[in-house]
Design a protein around this nucleic acid. Structure first.
Lengths: 137, 137
DNA sequence: GACATACTTTAGAACTATTATAAACTTTAA
DNA sequence: TTAAAGTTTATAATAGTTCTAAAGTATGTC
């Protein structure tokens, strides 16, 4: 993703392209494959690889702004480390989870098919289905 | 579940039947259906319905002891309230999750069938599969 | 039943992830 | 260039959970 398209992405979401946001967006979106991260891992990367200063609150704010704008999704998994995982893959999909390494791996939506699904309880409908396949060695 | 069987359950897990553990076990296992709870909801119940005093740490200790002994399972869902859900249903199964009420509802294992499942990544095997069906109104 | 031992409970401190606050700073559009 | 609105920052606050060390309790033995 080019710099201008990152700026557009921010601007079209109503986010002013500040130095911090641009750095974070470059890190998140200047790559071929989507990936998973935590606020902690993102912060470490930014501290190491950029000369910009990032308050922790800024990273949280920015990640939430991106999430709200639909550029990021949150994985509703409570892993053993108890941190929130974010995913630059915003399409419907599933995950492998390796609790030994706390690592998430994407599963495309079409790689899992259901033969049978229960009826949702009274008055409710299905918003979406999340499958976590827990791995062991 | 009778009182003696609760005592046996504790003892067979290497847990001394203290007043606190017996009260908690009675609450968790003296009923027909399994159910979900959080440490907070359990603590509130115990404060209201018993005359025994429970330090918060004791509730955590006891719940973890039951989990370790295999009498409870933990749901690996990160709900919006960010608390840990425990489940007295220790068999393999799945859940509906209503984010409006933060409520979990069990789905029996045989109510979900898969037609297609991806191969696990290199060297790993599947430990188990957890399905969360998110609900909306 | 009394005793020693090992296990438990307890209150409070500590810890971790996250969110709130309010002042200083930046971007924006006119 | 300037005022308004939005953003970053350091720090404090919060929430859930775990740790600690002292006081209390269950257990097996005599």
């Amino acid at each position: 993703m080019k710099k201008t398209s990152i700026l557009n992405k921010l601007r079209s979401s109503g986010l002013r392209p500040t130095k911090q946001r641009v750095e974070i967006a470059k890190f998140l979106y200047s790559r071929d494959k989507t990936f998973h991260f935590t606020v902690e891992s993102l912060g470490k990367y930014l501290a190491k690889k950029t000369t910009t200063k990032f308050a922790l609150a800024t990273i949280y704010n920015t990640v939430h702004a991106f999430k709200k704008a639909g550029h990021l999704s949150e994985v509703h998994l409570r892993g053993k480390n108890n941190t929130t995982y974010f995913d630059t893959n915003i399409s419907n999909h599933h995950h492998f989870y390796d609790s030994q390494t706390s690592e998430l791996i994407d599963i495309n939506e079409n790689e899992i098919k259901f033969d049978k699904i229960p009826k949702s309880p009274n008055g409710k409908t299905i918003k979406n289905i999340e499958v976590i396949i827990n791995l062991k060695n």
